[in-house]
């Protein structure tokens, strides 16, 4: 199970840049990110190389930040790759809260970060169905 950092951001100029600046200055590398936004606020979701330290840095910088457990799935980087995984997840009755994708380091597959309702159930289902996912350290070390 991998840790994602979620950060509350007001929709104001410069907020995102102050997060990335704080992380950059502390030599934290961002592996993946996505932003969910509404008209008033946004939630920044981050995968970084050192989530524990990054959490403390953002907290000290005055941000509301929380750790969320997510799972990073390897998806074949070919047409229909994601569809296959989603179909299998649906078959296993896994509820997805949200997801975001990023290109992995290999040429053959992409990575998709899933926030699911029940992460334990997801791991078991993934193993049964042969869906590859990354262990925590693998993801941070990418």
């Amino acid at each position: 199970m991998s840790k994602q950092l979620s950060v509350f951001l007001e929709n104001k100029a410069g907020r995102l840049s102050s997060v990335t600046k704080a992380l950059g200055e502390a030599r934290i590398n961002i592996r993946a990110l996505s932003i969910a936004d509404t008209s008033d606020f946004g939630i920044l979701r981050l995968i970084v190389n050192d989530p524990n330290r990054a959490y403390q840095i953002l907290k000290d910088a005055g941000f509301t930040v929380s750790e969320t457990e997510v799972i990073a799935v390897r998806v074949q980087d070919t047409p229909g790759g994601l569809a296959t995984v989603l179909e299998q997840m649906s078959d296993a009755n896994l509820n997805i809260e949200y997801l975001y994708a990023f290109l992995g380091t290999s040429e053959d597959d992409a990575l998709v970060i899933f926030k699911v309702e029940d992460i334990k159930k997801a791991r078991i289902a993934f193993k049964e169905k042969g869906i590859q996912f990354l262990e925590e350290q693998e993801l941070y070390q990418l």
Binding site: F8, T38, D40, I43, R45, T64, V65, S66, K115
Partner: peptide, 18 residues
Amino acid sequence: EVSEQIFSDEVRKLEDLG
């Protein structure tokens, strides 16, 4: 102010709180 206790990584939950 959104404190850590009421923050959620899900938009829906924060909107529900609002």
